[in-house]
Design a protein around this nucleic acid. Structure first.
Length: 279
DNA sequence: CACCACCCCTGGACGC
DNA sequence: TGCGTCCAGGGGTGGT
């Protein structure tokens, strides 16, 4: 569920807390969400946190010595800060806890929680190894990709544009919600083969995507089920959804019922009237 | 290489 | 009320 706008909100809410904070202790409650070395040192134990970065739907907590922890929230993952608690949590879905001491001496903890465990935590020695192992497999970030670059990438596949835009190796950051919202806003049929989309339409696609994502970020992201930002606060952008979760309901543009189908194995909601091929 | 089906997992919705 | 069933979904893997 957390897609680019939600992950960006997690980073933005946690960054001011984390930067300069010292990691006093790491507690692992569930080892199988961890990939790579799971020592306290690898998980930034004893280190000062330099910053927090994001690429697509993934983020990384970067230590001062260059080690880093990469996090992926999957569908139901969250990374939330709260005042340091006493004792152990009874929540079976809290998998990793970092206890930190901020620059103002305030002691707090960051908790990685993920009931469905589609997410995960990876440790790396330095940004290069993170890049080599994970981020180089991702396409350019959806917020900054250039129209020409997306056009070049779409030209290389005859899959439906919906499937292509969901493919993180093509462009990183969109999930099912924002692809459907994007295609509706562009009046683009989700089924159109990606390599038949004209260059002018790709330009519209990129501009619309950037506006959509920026608005969603400004609204705190979409909280459809249980997404919350780094402070535990839900977003409001689900109220602005035009199609996602609205199958059968009237199109906000033409009033006709929105269609639901399955594309690339994902529920896809769109307006058969407003969204055409050859946008 | 391109593409697809399948699987992982659990909470919530729904039907009886 | 309580139980069974189904579905949501990102991404890794293995098959065509």
């Amino acid at each position: 569920m957390p897609e680019l706008p939600e992950v960006e909100n997690v980073c933005r809410t946690l960054r001011p807390l984390l930067e300069g904070a010292r990691c006093q202790r790491v507690t692992i409650h569930r080892r199988d969400v961890l990939h790579g070395s799971a020592t306290s040192q690898a998980l930034l134990g004893g280190q000062h946190i330099h910053t927090m970065r994001r690429h697509g739907k993934q983020m990384a907590m970067i230590g001062e010595d260059g080690r880093l922890v990469c996090l992926h929230l999957g569908m139901t993952g969250s990374l939330v800060a709260r005042p340091a608690g006493r004792g152990r949590s009874t929540d079976p879905h809290e998998h990793v806890r970092w206890q930190l001491c901020g620059r103002d001496e305030f002691v707090f903890e960051i908790v990685f929680r993920d009931p469905r465990r589609f997410g995960g935590v990876w440790t790396f020695d330095c940004p290069d190894t993170l890049h080599a192992a994970r981020w180089s497999n991702l396409g350019p970030d959806a917020l900054t990709i250039k129209p020409m670059e997306l056009h070049r990438r779409l030209r290389g596949t005859q899959r439906a544009v919906k499937a292509a835009m969901l493919d993180q190796t093509l462009v990183a950051g969109l999930g099912n919600i924002y692809v459907d919202e994007l295609l509706f806003r562009c009046r683009q049929a989700p089924t159109q083969p990606a390599n038949t989309i004209p260059q002018a339409s790709t330009r519209t696609l990129v501009n619309t995507m950037r506006r959509l994502l920026m608005r969603a970020i400004a609204s705190g992201g979409s909280s459809v089920r249980d997404y919350v930002n780094g402070q535990g606060v839900p977003g409001a952008f689900q109220r602005s959804h035009a199609v996602y979760g609205r199958g059968g309901q009237p199109c906000r543009r033409c009033g006709r019922g929105l269609a639901t189908t399955v594309l690339a194995g994902r529920t896809t909601v769109f307006c058969e009237t407003c969204q055409s091929q050859d946008g």
